[in-house]
Amino acid sequence: MSDLARYVIRRIILAIPTLLGVSVIVFLMIHMLPGDPAQLLAPPEATIQEVEMIRRRLGLDKPLWEQYLIFMSNALKGEFGKSLFTGHTVSELLWPAYLNTLTLSVLAMGFGLVIGVLMGIYAALRPNTVRDQAVTSLSLLGISMPVFWLGLILIEIFSVWLRLLPSGGSGTFKHLILPSLTLGLVGAAYVGRATRASMLEVLSQEYIRTARAYGLPDRLVIYVYALRNALIPVVTVAGLIFGYMMAGAVLTETVFSFPGLGRLIVNAIFARDYPIVQAGILVVATTFVVINTAVDILYAFINPRIRLR
């Protein structure tokens, strides 16, 4: 396990320059975007002097490098400043949104993995039959379907017609079901395709044929011998999807008025609320790095043949 520990530490150290780079790029990009928070914040009738005053109050009149240093030195202390618009501290905006999105993504990933893996296996066992084609088409539909459309359809069915689940908002488990299902179904489509492909490949390998030749029960062959190896590429896909869910669930969050991270960041970009964008993207980048490392470590557990280097 000490190998593993060393590996984890090395990955964490490697992550630091990545995150620093992200912070610089994000900072430059958001500040280079045309648009001025002071102008967006001032009422239309404000005079130029008043807009200038707002700019000064927000600290946006300082040179860019100075603003970046202020931002970074505060960030290292765990302070991300305040929203330029509502005056709430970034932490008080960011963490609840982060936790919401994390809960949503974990639940959606659960849906996605269970549905996707089962679908993939189901299709792979009878390749090129009607049921394989049915599953493949269904997952193609899932990948191609706009997620907000799927969300609206689910709301129409479960909230407007059946009145079983709330159409939007947050706070209880009930509020999580529809958005996580929406997000999860899209994930399931990707997972399903990955599982099918990798399962097909594994099933054609010799050790499976050997196992079958020994007369081992089908169930054992598929779910223990084949699946374990077939899941390795699936884990990669799942890790990527999870990362995208954490960062890019904005459409789902918007449809379900779910106060998550994606919506927070996108709204902040449109409003040019620099502190939220900077901190938000840094948090997303950190999450990505963490997930990637976790996936790499998970590999080792699933398949002992993969050695840590």
Binding site: F148, L152, I155, E156, S159, V160, R163, P166, S167, G168, G169, T254, V255, F256, S257, P259, R263, N267
Partner: peptide, 18 residues
């Protein structure tokens, strides 16, 4: 006052009683 950014979602919330 609930923040519901998507136009259609606001309509559906009233239709569903939320």
């Amino acid at each position: 006052f609930l923040v519901v950014p998507e136009d259609e979602a606001r309509v559906q919330m009233v239709e569903s009683g939320d």
